[in-house]
């Protein structure tokens, strides 16, 4: 969505422009303070990744590094299974996110466009799934994957990630489905498209912002998950990036420099993806819900 039109010179009775200007300064200050507060831990991550290891937890903390080194990054990249971890994370996250978006979209279409018996029950199921504390579910989930044969398989992890993001995704996309004018769909139908055909050709593209918004949630959820992936995946070359990260902690302490460098690298794809869809997402997040 376009950035709010900057001060419209139009007919608006210029009411106290001075005050407005002054208040803008105040808000800029607020913005900068908030920027520092939000960015400081991220800054610290990057700074720690660039510092020699013994300076990271130095007793004489400085807000900027005295010496900069890329050693930590080299160690992080050279650690065993980095490549396979990237591959695993990509396979798992891309599939889980795409699958969740697909299922959520068609489910959202159902609850957004139809009245049918069981609709409320379905919505309740969506809700209950979100209420459970994830750590308590670990063992029952593991046993279930054992039954299904999903242990040590990518799909075992994928399915769990997919399902845990379904409720939010369905919810969000539903908001877009109901906002799409019916006429559009109907005219397409009359043109000879089937209902599903109409959906795919006409409506799907209009859901893009909602999909973008939901997918970023799904991605952050899947990309940053650790415990389930660690417990379910057994072969070391199937470990995801977040599991691989923990290899920097041994019984002899943690290689914090490498850990921070690796974390910096791991965060990059998420930030890039986020930047790509961020604008659409800000639009997406609300037009769904505001409608209510």
């Amino acid at each position: 969505m376009s950035v709010t039109a900057p001060t419209r010179p139009g007919p608006t009775p210029a009411y106290r422009p001075d005050r407005k200007k002054k208040s803008r300064h105040v808000y800029n200050v607020v913005g900068l303070v908030a920027f520092v507060a939000m960015a400081f831990p991220v800054y610290w991550l990057v700074v720690s990744a660039l510092r020699p290891n013994q300076e990271i937890r130095s007793y004489d903390q400085k807000l900027w590094p005295d010496s900069v080194t890329l050693d930590n990054f080299q160690r992080a990249i050279a650690a065993p299974n980095f490549g396979t971890a990237i591959q695993s994370s990509l396979i798992i996250c891309v599939t889980a996110v795409a699958g969740a978006m697909l299922m959520a979209t068609i489910a959202a279409f159902a609850i957004g466009r139809f009245q049918f018996a069981g609709r409320k029950a379905f919505m309740i199921v969506l809700l209950v799934v979100q209420l459970l504390p994830p750590t308590a579910l670990l063992i029952p989930l593991y046993l279930q994957l054992n039954e299904l044969g999903g242990l040590n398989e990518y799909w075992g992890v994928i399915v769990v990630y997919l399902v845990s993001t379904l409720p939010f995704a369905t919810w969000m996309i539903r908001g877009f489905v109901v906002n799409i004018p019916k006429e559009l769909e109907e005219s397409a139908m009359v043109d000879g498209c089937s209902r599903m055909g109409a959906f795919w050709r006409v409506i799907f593209p209009l859901l893009a912002p909602g999909l973008a918004a939901a997918s970023i949630f799904a991605l952050i959820n899947a990309w940053n998950e650790y415990l389930l992936a660690y417990v379910v995946l057994q072969d070391n070359d199937k470990y995801t990036l977040n599991v691989w990260l923990m290899n920097f902690s041994t019984s002899r302490g943690t290689d914090y420099g490498a850990l921070m460098a690796a974390s910096t690298l791991i965060a990059i794809p998420v930030v890039v993806f986020f930047m790509l869809v961020q604008k659409k997402m800000a639009a997406g997040l609300t037009s769904g819900a505001v409608k209510g």
Binding site: R24, A34, L45, L245, M246, S263, I266
Partner: peptide, 25 residues
Amino acid sequence: QRMTNWVRLALTGALVAAWSLPLLV
């Protein structure tokens, strides 16, 4: 809504970066 564009962009960037950090880190 009320801040200058570049300030808002900077702030959004920080928000995004913060969001993407794994919990562990």
